[in-house]
Amino acid sequence: MDIQDLEKRLLNDFQRDLPLEPRPFLAMAERLGVTEDEVLSALGDLRDTGAISRVGAVIRPNSVGASTLAAMAVPPQDLERVAALVSAHAAVNHNYEREHRLNLWFVVTAPDADGVAAVLDDISERTGLAVLDLPMLEGYHLDLGFALQWT
């Protein structure tokens, strides 16, 4: 198997069910017919190039700590400054600019709901702008991975 095929198999077949045994990468290597070193090296390359963000656990929202999705309508001339202020919060783990009057969307995660509220209050106070609080009320997708299409 060449490196490209190995990387595709790792991406497609191992978004879930990483073996929970002492040497998980060896178990993957045996399934793929390659060596443990080749699996580790390919995963390291995928991580270093940004194709994967990590090899690890995806945690259900709000099972450890609390989180919310927040949105702000930021005047275009202030966007850089406000976006930087928002991103600088350690509690903010995603921050996107989107095409809408509500143009700044970010996720806030904290140990508890009071911590989330404090971050939203702080951002609102420091920017003088309203922050829309859109917490998840119910989730409908188990996020069991995503079928990648190779073209």
Binding site: L10, L11, F14, Q15, R16, D17, L18, L20, E21, P22, L43, L46, T49, G50, A51, I52, S53, R54, V55, G56, A57, V58, I59, R60, S63, V64, L142, D143, L144, G145, F146, L148
Partner: peptide, 29 residues
């Protein structure tokens, strides 16, 4: 290590961990 995998298995079964594996970066792909 046995305790770690036992606990991760339990958290998977309870749905606290949704999955363990390679987390793709859709944008980069």
């Amino acid at each position: 290590a046995e305790d770690v995998t036992a606990r991760m298995t339990r958290m998977l079964d309870a749905g606290i961990i949704r999955r363990i594996g390679a987390v793709p970066n859709h944008y980069a792909l």
